[in-house]
Design a binder for these strands. Structure first.
Lengths: 234, 234
DNA sequence: CGGCCTTATTTGTAATACATAATTACCTTA
DNA sequence: TAAGGTAATTATGTATTACAAATAAGGCCG
């Protein structure tokens, strides 16, 4: 389930290696990286590959290069915190509870708003997609089927908002959260406990009742917050 | 006010040039770019510079390069929609009303939630910062002073949430919106009309009343939505 | 002492050569 | 003839070298 992110390109490996070091705090903000020539030699890559990697890290706001001065790690306020890689590196290096809280907080902001927007604007096709996902949840025979359908449900709601910014945000947050948790999963015995919540959201979206959808989704995320459990570090 | 984004690096210019073309739709998703050698020659840069630029665009999810196949523009679902550059390119090329609506929608989701979170968690220093910004708004003698203080107020609230993901999201959205609008500005005559709204938010944050802060901020953004006006394309 | 200029150092850009992977076409073989 | 493998082709990937440009630092000169 956890993808190893096997980067095929050499510069991609360098990006991840340096990115992890920086976000992980092993190279602190304000600190300078070694000269390109040295660093390249030390990492056993050409200066070309190293530079391509550094341009990517620059684009993510992690570093800043200037002639003569060298390349230095920028302050965290400049980091692209919403970049998928940056988030992944944080997840890998900062297993503190408060970061998870921040991710959960974002999720709890987005989802009710998305439900409301979906109820306001969904097309018949988008409603059908939510409906299909709901039926799959209702029919799920295993925890695996359930979680797959559950994710599909939330994605369908997001798509129904017709706001790709919201979709993108949710996607990034959800991926990062997935590193830590099995979302909304109780025991295998009653993994369908939240089905009524989902039904209320679905119905509200069908009837185009934004506030009802918002409240239903709010209750769902509040309820699920206490039920998410730490994933084993397998 | 509108920064021309004069990129000093050559590859940075190439990034913006290609990024604009792609996001602007002049090079459609699925379409292949010319071979690196050809494209470099056509843009009057070395293959080295072009490749550094392409790595950045890859990191933003806009393109995908594979050996033999070439480099092709990826589908929009893979774009890093929350990347500052990608947003800027969209703003520059897609002046349709519905995109502005999406930005405003995001803002209206974030701000009330931020106000609530700020009321819950703000430190004395963070409260002081909000307070300072409010006083500056109250004392503003010109529309310019007002808008500066207004932005400082909202930034202070965001910082008080202690959630850098929210801060980053707001920052990106606000920058993009700034391309289009003078936010919350009425006529020069009564530019302080929203001061009472701000006071309610400030007081709620001071008294640690999350729901009050949320509602006050909600009223403020709803009120301001109808008062934002199109900026002249100066 | 202060301002200007030279110099040294680091990143920026270019050009070239070759490696690698993936597609395509051909060629072998049952 | 069709299936399969194999070699040629062609794009990006990587390495190396050389030089340009910017700028911090130190020395020179007024």
């Amino acid at each position: 389930m956890v993808k190893p992110v096997t980067v095929r390109n050499l510069h991609g490996q360098v990006v991840h290696e340096l990115g992890r070091l920086i976000v992980g705090g092993e190279i602190a903000p304000g600190q300078n990286l070694p000269r390109e020539e040295l660093l390249a030699e030390r990492m056993n890559v050409s200066r070309t590959a190293l530079r391509e990697a550094m341009k990517v890290l620059s684009a993510k706001g992690l570093i800043e290069s200037r002639q003569k001065t060298g390349t230095r790690v920028r302050d965290t306020v400049h980091w692209n915190q919403l970049d998928a890689d940056v988030l992944a590196w944080r997840c890998a290096s900062m297993p503190t509870e408060d970061f998870v809280e921040k991710l959960v907080e974002m999720r709890e902001i987005i989802e009710p708003a998305a439900a409301a927007a979906a109820a306001r604007r969904r097309s018949p096709e988008q409603l059908a997609r939510v409906d299909t996902a709901y039926e799959a949840m209702a029919a799920a025979a295993s925890l695996d089927d359930w979680t797959t359908a559950d994710l599909a449900f939330h994605e369908a709601v997001l798509h129904a908002t017709q706001n790709e910014l919201m979709i993108s945000l949710f996607s990034v947050i959800e991926t990062a959260l997935g590193t830590y948790f099995v979302l909304s999963a109780r025991t295998a015995g009653d993994f369908k406990y939240s089905l009524p919540h989902h039904k209320k959201v679905l119905d509200a979206i069908r009837r185009r009742q934004p506030e009802v959808a918002r409240q239903a989704m709010t209750r769902m995320v509040i309820d699920s917050r206490s039920n998410i459990r730490r994933r084993g570090k397998s």
